[in-house]
């Protein structure tokens, strides 16, 4: 399923202009790429969050596919209801079209408050794709720490202070948590590697059952970098192996795109204001700690892949 931009550009956008995301918004790119890959016959459920807010300020909507939002933690439950309705109505002959069902949630709505509903939806086997646009903090409410916020990051609720240097917990590995549900397809992607990401969206939608993609989507506001660097930073997350690109298909891990040579994680950290305090002399050891963790996680992933697990 090769992604051809020229072909895709002909179908037009399903997330259109005039939305009110920040200049350089990573999540907006994540949504737009996903919809371009999914195509017109797609129904979207969206969790409360930045993307819900900026795309649907009444009376304007940036969506050109049917879209439903109800609450923060229930995008997965909402889409499972939509999908159940579709199944019932199809069985009764009231609808015949094949339709994709996608839920979008940020890391707040997915890793944390929405995890229960997501877990239930995955376990029940609905034929849906859940895409978490992970920008590693609660950006909609003003950059508060989440379960996805990396170790050492400054947020407004894990501020880098005189005594505590930002977040002192590791981020939870949601991709693996969802993979543990033993569903047909789980993947991790980033918006800079669009071919990999959009290919995963298309692959996921071709598979029956519950699917999950965790896509890293940098936030210039919350990560404190210049708006033109969104893609560059997304790419560095991949090249430093902080954010490996892989998929778990029927329980088997496979790295889908591998950086030829790993870039030190410092290169990624130093572009972002949220890690600025780590570069003070007294905090340099935290960077080493982060690098060690990145290396360990990568080793683990490679081992899983090599073992065919």
């Amino acid at each position: 399923m090769a992604i051809n931009l020229k072909e895709l550009s002909k179908q037009g956008d399903f997330l259109t202009s005039g939305h009110r995301a920040c200049a350089g918004c990573g999540p907006a790119i994540a949504l737009r790429q996903a919809l371009l890959a999914a195509g017109k016959d797609t129904v979207v459920a969206n969790a409360t969050g930045c993307m819900e807010v900026v795309t649907t300020i009444f009376p304007y909507t940036a969506w050109k596919v049917p879209w439903i939002h109800s609450l923060f933690e229930n995008a997965a439950a909402t889409i499972s209801g939509v999908e159940a309705a579709y199944k019932a109505l199809k069985r009764k002959g009231k609808i015949s079209k094949d339709i994709n069902f996608i839920a979008f949630g940020g890391d707040g709505g997915t890793y944390d408050i929405g995890l229960q509903a997501l877990s239930g939806t995955m376990e029940r086997g609905h034929n849906i794709l859940y895409i978490c646009y992970d920008n590693e903090a609660y950006m909609n409410t003003g950059i508060q720490r989440s379960g996805a916020t990396p170790y050492g990051a400054h947020t407004t609720t894990s501020p880098a202070g005189k005594k505590i240097p930002g977040k002192t917990q590791w981020r939870k590995d949601l991709t693996e948590i969802i993979a543990a549900h033993d569903i047909p397809y789980v993947a991790q992607a980033t918006i800079s590697e669009w071919r990999d990401y959009m290919g995963k969206v298309q692959k996921a939608l071709s598979i029956k059952g519950p699917k999950f993609i965790n896509v890293l989507a940098p936030c210039q506001l919350g990560w404190y970098y210049k708006s033109e660097d969104t893609i560059k930073i997304a790419n560095l997350a991949f090249r430093t192996r902080f954010w490996p690109l892989y998929e778990v298909e029927n329980g088997v891990h496979r790295i889908t795109k591998e950086p030829k040579k790993a870039v030190p994680v410092e290169e990624w950290l130093k572009l972002q204001g949220r890690f600025r305090h780590l570069f003070k002399d007294e905090n340099r050891k935290i960077i080493e700690k982060i690098q060690k963790r990145v290396d360990e996680r990568w080793k683990r992933l490679k081992a899983l892949e090599e073992a065919g697990l």
Partner: peptide, 20 residues
């Protein structure tokens, strides 16, 4: 039901003046 029945109506909202 507070729905928006005009898909892509955000195109009426011009964000070009946000450029700094």
């Amino acid at each position: 039901g507070a729905i928006i029945d005009e898909a892509g109506s955000s195109e009426k909202f011009k964000t070009g003046d946000w450029r700094e």
